[in-house]
């Protein structure tokens, strides 16, 4: 087999997140509207590799994905050995905003999956005017736990093979084996206790359902897309969230589970491409109406 190269480029950026120096790994491909991708708990940016190699996306979008600190190739901050990793809502948003600023992403669309699909609700609330829209995959505006909290204190949570087995049923039965097992490998790879640390955000520090109705979807469209086989964020969780956000759209994806972009990239593309197309069209109309009155700096509001 001859060598074949993908169009993905990787890099490292040194930046401060909530006042702490970090070295963050990111990948990108394509040109156009920035599309910032957020991986699931305990995983890393490789989940987005298929999107970055799809010219139907990269012809129009600059697709950027990064590894949260502690994940993938983004190391924890110095002194990690004396800390217990625990992702908070504030810390998660701070990391996203830091990467958004550092890479100069002008009014990005943010797409996140699972805990990434949760945090986009908060991004739309807190930074909506500085975004072109958010897409929450397997996303909702409040925790909806499906296993007992005491499990988190068991030693198994420090083991990658356990984390993978815990989530394995969230991959739809239709998904090709090669993609299923690569998706699960990301969980095998996770640093010990990192998946558990992400669960702090996902299970206890991401209740937005009281505020989510305040999102102005005329400025920041909200699209929630959930696989029918997802029992972590169920289609019902997603529909209920969309019902609370005026103007939000809920799409239930047949034959997909909790990891649509990595478990079955082709099937996912059939759902995502029309959404991206609509966001582009909405964005062009908005640009015609206002000549860039809102610049995409998150801190500027």
């Amino acid at each position: 087999m001859s060598a074949r190269f993908e169009p993905i480029r990787g890099g490292y950026v040194h930046l401060d997140i909530a006042g702490v120096a970090h070295r963050v790994y990111y990948e990108e491909a394509g040109a156009g509207i920035p599309l910032l991708c957020l991986h699931t708990a305990g995983a890393h940016s490789s989940q987005w590799r298929h999107l970055m190699c799809d010219p139907r996306v990269t012809d129009h979008f600059r697709v950027v994905a990064f590894d949260l600190p502690w994940h993938g190739k983004s190391a924890p901050p110095p002194g990690w050995q004396d800390q217990e990793y625990r992702l908070t809502g504030d810390g998660y948003v701070a990391a996203i905003v830091a990467v958004w600023n550092a890479l100069g992403l002008d009014r990005p669309v943010v797409i996140g999956c699972s805990m990434g699909g949760r945090v986009v609700v908060r991004l739309a609330l807190d930074h909506g005017p500085a975004l072109r829209g958010v897409i929450g995959l397997e996303g909702s505006d409040r925790p909806s736990p499906w296993y007992d909290g005491s499990w988190l204190d068991r030693p198994e949570f420090a083991r990658g093979d356990f984390c993978a087995a815990l989530v394995s049923g969230l991959v739809a039965p239709q998904s090709p084996d090669v993609h299923r097992w690569e998706t699960l490998w990301h969980y095998h790879q996770s640093g010990s206790d990192v998946f558990k640390g992400d669960m702090h955000f996902y299970r206890t520090d991401s209740e937005y359902s009281e505020r989510s109705h305040q999102i102005d979807t005329s400025r920041c469209p909200v699209v929630l897309m959930t696989g029918e086989y997802d029992y972590s964020c169920t289609p019902e969780d997603t529909r209920a969230t969309a019902a609370r956000i005026p103007g939000a759209e809920a799409i239930v994806m047949e034959g997909l589970g909790h990891f649509p972009m990595s478990e079955n990239p082709e099937r996912f593309a059939s759902y995502l491409l029309p959404v991206l197309e609509r966001l582009r069209a909405t964005d062009s109309r908005a640009s015609l109406r206002s000549t860039g009155a809102t610049r995409g700096r998150p801190d500027g509001g």
């Binding site: 499906w146 296993y147 815990l166 394995s168 049923g169 969230l170 739809a172 039965p173 029918e228 086989y229 029992y231 289609p235």
Partner: peptide, 8 residues
């Protein structure tokens, strides 16, 4: 959906 795994 809902029958593919013991946790589902």
């Amino acid at each position: 959906p809902g029958f593919q795994d013991i946790f589902a």
